[in-house]
Nucleic acid binder design. Structure first.
Lengths: 354, 354
DNA sequence: GTTAGCACTCCGGACGTGAGAGTGCTAACT
DNA sequence: AGTTAGCACTCTCACGTCCGGAGTGCTAAC
């Protein structure tokens, strides 16, 4: 007691930390409230269960643990997890074997860049037994690299944009009259000469001057307008796409056997805007970012935790990888995995722009 | 009784059909076993509950209904649903309002063909309150329409293939030495001249003769090899991708509140091979194809039903749209929706190849 | 400061009970 | 013959009761 009075809000003494850690790690594996008895049995605490009870009561006062009811064991609070993640948790480094395996997997699809994100999500899901998330690298504003116009039907053409980061957008365009491929090639040459290297805004500017010039063929004008719209839409989307894998892992956790809560999480995940705000929030931090339970502003997400990290280059293309799991989650493992995978994605992006 | 003895395996008399129909429709809305009493209350059967009980007992003998236990109401069997779908169910046509709404939605994204499938899945999910499925139209063997080679970094290029159906494939290629865009343009012109219009097999053939010709620049050879591999992979995949929407709808059905069964379904859905076999199976039938419960060969799917239809042109590009829901599903609604949406997708594909 | 001992609390499973829903059967009715 | 009313029977489910066990908090001794 005297100890608590001396520094009521100070850092926890080592023994309290040790016990908090033990409670969390026990709870993470069993999903059952942890009693003082089982703690002294499974962990070498060197004290009796009575002492553990005293410490636990202190930890509960400090807000790190709770009680489901009087005669039940202790359960960590969000605050408890927070302290654990920031100070107590062991530094988690992936085992070399695991690193090697992940590297190997990425090597397999090295040049199918659209596969990276799926792979990142799948890898994270497999390593953490929770859900893996990954978004493609996306720059704040895209630049047009190359335009292609291909006749697909007599009066329909496929307009293909290759953007600076190497991503591709494609749409169909109805043609007012038949064109053959050679004519379309001529048009696309003109368009490329006019717009290559432009951002969406610059395309819009060029468009204004083009519209005033009566020498410009109408088809070319329409194409340019379409390009402008496609690029603008692309820029407007905060998150292009989110790949997730292993949502099923989370589904089988006991706290989600009553599926209603999890359903809400799924719904929230489909919401691009929410994910966009999340990405913006994470984008500012350099290392892995952990959001525990109620720290998520969205009500639906208050029963789950997120471990997120960005990859890519701040000015240019950036994306996010992460883990979604129950608050009762193996944080060290998750953090280690996310850190490693984001590093790997960094390498890949760098390689691409080298 | 005599009636049953007269034609024990013959078609059901109208009254039995009427009662089977009532049981199914009641059960579909309530998800509770249906008793004779509630049936005479809610439906105008013109007979007493005792008679209904007799008929129900007959239907159970015939295998169309079951009992969870002695003193419970009746529940339709897979066979019962089958009969319902094939003979008894009212012809379901979507309400004109609904048709109009769906048409309108498709109009919005008319030329973003990659959006069609998402939209189809979403539309079906919304209309049926079950999960919507859709695969892109995919031809048995693709043809190369146009190739594009774009420098993305000093020693990396993006290889873009535009395939005949208008779909696009993109991969990165590492370059052994720096090339500028003009050089890459020259190469892509050569490649286009050589391979445009080819199937994967034809590309492979050209490749053989190219490899013997020492005038062919090594970069071009590498590009062609890569193209061959990409096209071969594309052909090999039975199902390119499956868009699903509204799996959450199914999740909230009472029979799946214990999530384990549904988890298995989700896992099965991630399996491309399974979906491929499904597509092949459906591809033979011209109209909507209904798979009820245990009619699905996959064990995981025996608790759900599928309503599927193909769209596209048999020789050329074909895809599938459908509904996944509990066996206790509003079949007429589902069949009507799938039929309408597949027709719509047909129109779109036709328009594209007109 | 730690620990043994102990009274106390509360959950959760076992058990029993009664209401209710629904059936199947029989006998009467049309 | 087919239909129906009546009734006994069955089975589930919701509810209340009742321990056993796990775990706590407190106190007093070490």
């Amino acid at each position: 007691m005297a100890r608590r009075k001396d520094r009521p809000f100070g850092p926890l003494d080592p023994r309290s930390q040790q016990i908090l850690r033990a409670v969390i790690e026990e709870y993470v594996t069993t999903a059952e409230p942890v009693g003082s008895q089982s703690l002294v049995e499974h962990y070498n605490l060197g004290v009796s269960s009575a002492t553990v009870r005293n410490v636990m009561a202190e930890l509960e006062l400090g807000g790190y643990l709770t009680h489901p009811h009087t005669s039940a064991g202790r359960v960590p609070t969000d605050l408890g997890y927070r302290l654990y993640v920031e100070q107590i948790a062991p530094q988690m480094h992936l085992a070399p074997v695991e690193r090697l395996m992940i590297r190997h997997q990425f090597g397999q699809v090295e040049f199918a860049s659209e596969q990276w994100f799926r792979l990142a999500a799948a890898t994270i899901a497999a390593a953490t037994h929770a859900a893996g998330l990954a978004t493609p690298a996306k720059s704040r504003s895209c630049r047009l690299r190359h335009v292609d116009l291909v006749a697909t039907a007599t009066q329909t053409a496929s307009l293909v944009l290759v953007l600076a980061e190497g991503s591709v957008k494609q749409e169909l365009i109805p043609l007012s009259e038949p064109y053959d491929q050679h004519e379309l090639d001529d048009v696309s040459r003109l368009v490329n000469a006019e717009l290559a290297g432009c951002s969406a805004r610059q395309v819009a500017n060029r468009l204004e001057s083009l519209a005033l010039n009566f020498d410009v063929p109408p088809l070319m004008l329409r194409i340019c307008q379409r390009i402008e719209r496609m690029m603008r839409d692309f820029d407007a989307a905060a998150v292009e796409d989110v790949f997730s894998d292993g949502l099923l892992n989370v589904m089988s956790e006991p706290e989600f056997s009553q599926s209603e809560k999890l359903r809400r999480v799924f719904v929230a995940l489909q919401n691009r805007d929410y994910l966009g705000s999340l990405v913006r929030r994470v984008a500012t931090s350099t290392d892995v970012h952990v959001l525990i339970g109620a720290e998520n502003e969205a009500a639906e997400m208050q029963d789950v935790s997120l471990v997120l990290a960005t990859y890519g280059q701040p000015g240019r293309a950036m994306g996010v990888v992460g883990v979604l799991g129950p608050t009762r989650m193996a944080y060290p493992q998750a953090i280690g995995t996310v850190r490693f995978v984001s590093g790997l994605m960094n390498e890949l992006v760098e390689q691409l722009y080298r």
